[in-house]
Design a protein around this nucleic acid. Structure first.
Lengths: 334, 334
DNA sequence: AACGCTTTGCAAAACGTTTTGCAGCTGATA
DNA sequence: TATCAGCTGCAAAACGTTTTGCAAAGCGTT
């Protein structure tokens, strides 16, 4: 492993100068800088990150906490983050808490401790279950950004505009002539669920077709709930089916599509289907789902930006909150 | 940040002793060790990884190269690796080359360089496209393990038994009474494709029903090829449809299921469908696919084990090769 | 009591950087 | 010519560990 000293000898300067060339370009004359840079290239010198880290106190690594890397939303969140980190020379450490329902605060806390031990420059939390332990997030000694709705804003956060998105989807379905619409929500213990629900139902009410309470079903965001919802629909409403159904997550909607197919119910012929989310996996689903949502990569990038400003010290004011507007993708199911 | 010196003072010993307690338990008396450990606990001391790394030359990080984290096989490979790494105190760095077709060696090389610069203790390559640049893998200075078929065994590798799996699926379909079976392969530039193809076609031949060349279609492993294959099937064989179709990847099979549904072709009523792979996402597909494959997490764990033995120096002989047998999962599509 | 062997703990060096004073040189000003 | 200011580059300290000799102490054997 070639070290800074060898570069210095080859360039005929002191080791300090080489370091300056690397870290403070402008503090060394152009001529000398060029000489040093050539030496670096010739020797293929690569700074030792451990040594740099030891000296500067930085690790150049950030951690991201997610509940389930298998869920398309999180997969893409991670991919987006990786890409963004790569271009800044940061390592991204994935902490997959693997509690698909995202319900276990304890488990989340355990990971929070692990991450603190690990020593990273910053932390991105993208696990909605943890919004309820934001006081714990505050105690974490590294700068933190939250992806999702964080009611009392303990730390910087970035989220989708859930109310507006669901509202727009409601208006869209109404505009297609639907007035009797079933709604499969997320679990009520997530803020996010309640926000989307409120947005959707406001749209229906504003259009003069307030939702019939019996058409609301509380799901989990997870695939099995899609199957359950279809079963519920057929058991409770087979004599008077709604003309459309809106799911609060595309995973539930996908599963529901399968369940409907199992029963020979045609989409959108017999019932229209729409859902939240905007992920790439949906491109291969047939029939193609009509959905509304935000590109997860936009959330990652935003979170990393917030975080970097904290880490670098460029910003140190009170917690900020970014809300991204969603995109409606109309396809054949609704 | 509490450092080793403070622990030493609190325990009333020298800093060296504390280090020994941490790294060479048996070189310090039980009584003293206990005293030191209590001091560590009381102060909440956490060794500085950068300093450790600088001194020992280890980074305690490994990298994994994959072509597309969005593909379920790789998602689960990563999850499995993360879990395995966590339990050993290692960081896993994901390098997602993002060339879904997995066709670009250049791109792979670029990442290989990046990873070398990054400084990791070991590297796991799970990108089949790179089997053709194994001479480059050899040049990489860090220990490397390959996940997949590596013909000339430049480095340690672990793979699924592609021939046997496909052979067994062939036999299974025959046992269900199919004799005219279409086969959608992977791209011919992957060894893996040819291996699976050989296994499958051997089974048919052994059963006395060798495949009709016109029933073979070269796919890409990717979803769009599933659609293409269905189009091909209908254009070329609509007058004499095969009774079953075997896909070399579940992503193609899933897409084909969608394409068949688009056209009102029932599965397995009109045609049976089977595929390679064993990933969790398939649990939510309807109709449920009959598939054969290996749990990706088993591959990760195996690769990490091979790698660790190299890193620790426990093994330093010639490259090893592990071949894992697959599991057949029979469901309703075939 | 003297000897040697084993156990135990210490001091100091080393890992490869970054950064802080500080010194030397240059050229301009008085 | 003497002085001053501004550049430029250097030497040395510091970051927090691990590890290598070494010394001291304990213990059993002769």
């Amino acid at each position: 492993m070639v070290k800074i000293q060898e570069v210095a000898e080859r360039a005929g300067v002191s080791l300090t100068t080489v370091s300056h060339v690397i870290n403070h370009r402008d503090r060394v004359s152009p001529a000398l800088r060029e000489r040093v840079e050539r030496a670096i290239a010739e020797l293929g010198y690569i700074p030792n990150r451990q040594a740099q880290g030891l000296r500067t106190g930085r690790t150049n690594a950030i951690a991201i906490m997610i509940p389930d890397i298998g869920a398309p939303f999180y997969t893409e969140l991670v991919r987006g983050l990786q890409t963004a980190c790569d271009s800044e020379g940061l390592d991204a450490l994935i902490y997959n808490t693997d509690v698909p329902g995202g319900h276990s605060e304890d488990h989340g806390l355990h990971y929070l401790r692990m991450i603190e031990k690990r020593g990273v420059d910053g932390l991105i939390v993208a696990d909605a279950a943890l919004h309820r332990i934001q006081h714990e997030l505050l105690k974490v000694t590294v700068p933190t950004a939250f992806i999702g709705n964080l009611p009392n804003g303990a730390v910087d956060s970035i989220e989708q505009d859930g109310f507006d998105s669901a509202y727009r989807m409601g208006k869209y379905l109404i505009s297609k002539g639907h007035t009797r619409i079933a709604h499969v929500t997320g679990p009520s213990f997530f803020n996010m669920s309640m926000i989307r629900q409120a947005g959707f139902e406001h749209a229906l009410a504003d259009a003069g077709h307030p939702i019939d309470d019996s058409l609301r079903y509380e799901g989990t965001f997870l695939p099995p709930a899609g199957h359950d919802a279809v079963r519920w629909l057929l058991e409770r409403h087979s004599n008077n089916m709604p003309t459309a159904i809106f799911f609060a997550s595309s995973r539930m909607a996908r599963a529901a599509l399968a369940a409907l197919a199992d029963r020979g119910i045609r989409v959108p012929g017999d019932i229209a289907v729409a859902s939240y989310d905007l992920t790439k996996d949906l491109e291969d689903v047939r029939p193609r789902l009509t959905t509304i949502g935000v590109d997860p990569a936009d959330l990652s990038r935003g979170a990393l930006k917030l975080l970097n400003e904290r880490v670098s010290g460029a910003y140190s004011g009170p917690p900020r909150r970014i809300v991204l507007p969603a995109t409606l993708e109309v396809h054949m199911t609704a």
